[in-house]
Design a protein around this nucleic acid. Sequence first.
RNA 1: GGGCGCGUAGCUCAGGGGUAGAGCACUGUGUUCACACCGCAGGGGUCGCAGGUUCAAAUCCUGCCGCGCCCA
Length: 875
Amino acid sequence: MDKHYDPSDIEKKWFPHWENSGAFKGGRRPDAQPYCIVIPPPNVTGSLHVGHALNNTLQDVLCRFERLRGKDVLWQPGVDHAGIATQMVVERQLAAEGLDRRDMGREAFLERVWKWKEESGGTIENQLKRLGSSADWSRSRFTMDEGLSKAVVKVFVQYHREGLIYRDKRLVNWDPKFRTAISDLEVEQREVDGNFWHLAYPVDGSDERIIVATTRPETMLGDTAVAVHPEDDRYRHLVGKMVRLPLTDRLIPIIADEHADPEQGSGAVKITPAHDFNDFEVGKRNDLEMINIFDQHAAINENAPEKYRGMSREEARKAVVADLDALGVLVKIEPKRIMMPYGDRSGVVIEPWLTDQWYVDAKTLAGPAIEAVRSGKTKFVPGNWEKTYYQWMENIQPWCISRQLWWGHQIPAWYGPDGTVYVAESEEEAQAQAGEGVALTRDEDVLDTWFSSALWPFSTLGWPEDTPDVKRFYPTATLVTAFDIIFFWVARMMMSGLHFMNEVPFKDVYITSLVRDEKGDKMSKSKGNVIDPLDFINKYGADALRFTMASLETQGRDIKLSESRVEGYRNFGTKLWNAARFCEMNGIGGSRDLTPPPATLSVNRWIIGEIGKAAELVTKSLEAFRFDAAANAIYHFTWGTFCDWYLELIKPTLMGKDGAEKDETRAVAGWVLDQILVLLHPFMPFITEELWHALYEGDRDDLIEARWPVVRADAVDAEADAELTWIVDLISATRSARSEANIPAGAKVSVLVQETREERLLWLARNGDLILRLGRLASITPTEYLPNKGAVQFVMDGASFAIPLEGVIDLGEERARLDKAIAKTEKEINALSGRLSNEKFVANAPDEVVAEARNRLEQERDQLEKLKAAKARLG
RNA sequence: GGGCGCGUAGCUCAGGGGUAGAGCACUGUGUUCACACCGCAGGGGUCGCAGGUUCAAAUCCUGCCGCGCCCA
């Protein structure tokens, strides 16, 4: 083995090896229990960010864990076609060449997009591979694949047949930049500085004016009513009268509608049904005219007075406000923080716009999806996300699925000359429906990308074909995703999965934390605090990044990622590397057995129990999605137990003469190291695979396909455990005493111990060499009487110890040291005896708690006595 | 306004009725041969505040204060 641990060499070596060996392939263990995770498909335009790194680390940990446990694991990868984002990218490229998609035509444009996809679409997959993701890359799917497209068409047609997809004219969120409708979820509400413009509209045939306040004065050109609250006495006499709408020649009615809030502004409100969601409802209730004053660019159209036509929203606002002011209609401008809708991709203000679009009847589909979570068929982890899910599902709105784009699944609907719509899986079928000779035109629009993503857990497995994979891997086991797409994606997969497969798409939904920067700020390009996970991989290795992600992943708290953590876990890799190198130098190699080798030495029996405890902790933690606890358990065992104690404890044996004890120790050490490698493999796959082979003589199967440890906490040998605990405590106490007494590290000192208990004396005799070595001692000798002065003294486990250092020690310091220990012990005694003298405690507390307290009190009293005696000896 | 969550060591966070923990940082020290990306030893906390339940509260309950997120 190399003296230095270099992650990059190892990573380059093992990933292709695994991939070529077929280790990632699903379906290779036909007799085993299937375990399937579908990847949350990243955008084809995407590149790896820390959210992906976290999410995919966790998925890979689970997949590798279950693979090691013998399951037939399929991690299904792929990417989605990201309709708007991709079209943007390609249009930008075209613009740089002076081209416009509308000039080149749909077909040529789509060719261009596919070409872009072939060249640049693989970026994110390659980055996920750098992370070590053990997905079955040979099956990677794309939402625009032929098969997945077929699934989309089938779903659309069937939903339509069942009345769950319909075409409707209503207000949509219109993105004037991309000139497409978007769904509610793609709209961000942002609070911005705005105004309330107070306008005094003249009441027709009267001198009265009625004041309305609006945040969007330009929309007054489309007003078709003024509403007041039916109970509002101030306006009761005006209801039914008409207002002469300034700047236009129109007369609009004053109506009574509960939408008008008497507390808000003047209590009267202008109604623009074609440009506001609330007003739209008012308009429907009151049968108002709907005047659309904007075109698809959100510029004023021909329904407004000629003067304003062609103006943008912003220009129109200025002109309208100026004109109203000139007319004396504008009575007040009141600055106000207001909520404005923005497109999440375009960043422009969204316009509520009246158009024909396709909708999914989400309300109907939500019923079974809610029930599936209520009944526990699908569980959210952590469970509190279920509330979020219910809340949204119970208030779900129709889902607008049509987009005025070219890149995506074109809607399988054809229109006859009279506007009749024919929905069918192919043009031939549509023609058959329409009858021969009827000229058909296909709907130009495409579907929301999420419409195809909603089918991901079964479309990627081959549906609508009746494939063996669908049978075997659906429903999938676990979905790992972030909370921000519970609505976008999880809910919609639940709906379509239940509808088409009659079964939930996944049993557990693990909601990951959100990764923030080390100050706790959300990462964003504009803030410039984005951490590129590839930088960390390059600097510290993928294993270190993965381990960091896992160990920071706690349930219900955001992750603050800092470089020092990644560095620390790289150091952990180095530590393991060096420990393995030490093993190699001492003839310790990989084991051929799953079960522990026979062990007679206490230290070996002890470490077998310790790894058993660690294995149980890691296993249970992973089963409960406690990634932090699992990572910490293996970290602590490896560093704190195996390296710090076990390897030190076996050094004398390894350095000693050959024989049965040495053979046994080598076998146990090799076996334990193997267990570490397996337990750590899900978190640090590269270094563990490297060491797995480096330590083994001859060829062995890859670690990725090894078996998860079978030892558990019941491997603990109580006697060995007691003995080693004693040894460890004794060495620690010795080190403390000499450090506190400033005994130079290089000085070998002698220790006297006042000990009569047979078992301890036996332990001492048996482990003397170890204790001398690790405590830097010249000797340790049982004695009846401890020296009267000039010794550093300590008490441990009911025995008194002394390090005679005549003339060297500082008596004052030594007394202070013992006083400190005495004070600490007395404090314990007070607390314990206080509790035990409380009758209610003795009566009510569980027996073992009381017994424990009594036991401890006795020990503390014994300790106190010995400490006092030690102090007395100092004189 | 509705919902969710978080305040524990300097920092980042576990724990979740019965002895307050980890990593990093910090202080001291460095002994022979795995490792200074290291070893050994050590300091550091009225567990946000106030009530309540209990023999016992950091932990459960209520209220308050502070911070964050989601939805309207």
